[in-house]
């Protein structure tokens, strides 16, 4: 039986790695990758807590209410939508600015 804390620790590490990436990558695609990591860190937590603390009666007899899984599904869908739009934006900016580096398009208009 793996303790719940270990999932939390895993998710915390994943989250921190994502934050670090989002803070340091110069490449816009790199930043999007980091954001995916952050979202997945959240998903791990959702699913793990759903499994460990998901029953209503506190005895482990009733079936688990799968709210966490449903949330995780939604997060996956939203992540998909976000990365689609984000990547298209990156491509549009690339066409315009010929660069993908964040400092290259820090002005709103040129």
């Amino acid at each position: 039986m793996i303790p719940l804390e270990h999932f939390c620790l895993l998710s915390a590490f994943l989250f921190c790695a994502g934050i670090y990436g989002a803070l340091t990558r110069r490449n816009a695609i790199g930043i999007l990758i980091s954001i995916e990591l952050i979202l997945n860190a959240a998903n791990i937590n959702l699913v793990a807590f759903n499994k460990y603390l998901g029953t209503n009666d506190g005895l482990g007899q009733a079936p688990t209410v799968p709210s966490g899984q449903v949330f995780a599904l939604f997060v996956v869908a939203i992540a998909a939508a976000a990365s689609v739009v984000g990547l298209v934006l990156i491509i549009a900016i690339y066409r315009h600015a010929k660069s993908l580096f964040t400092e290259g398009f820090h002005l709103m208009k040129e």
Binding site: P3, L4, L9, A12, C16, A17, I19, K51, Y52
Partner: peptide, 25 residues
């Protein structure tokens, strides 16, 4: 991020969940 990680590790290692109730899958 290092500080954040340390804080979280410290918190989780010091506050374990005592009694996880595993339900039916």
């Amino acid at each position: 991020t290092g500080i954040l990680l340390c804080v979280l590790f410290r918190f989780f290692s010091q506050n374990p969940w005592a009694n996880p109730n595993l339900g039916k899958p």
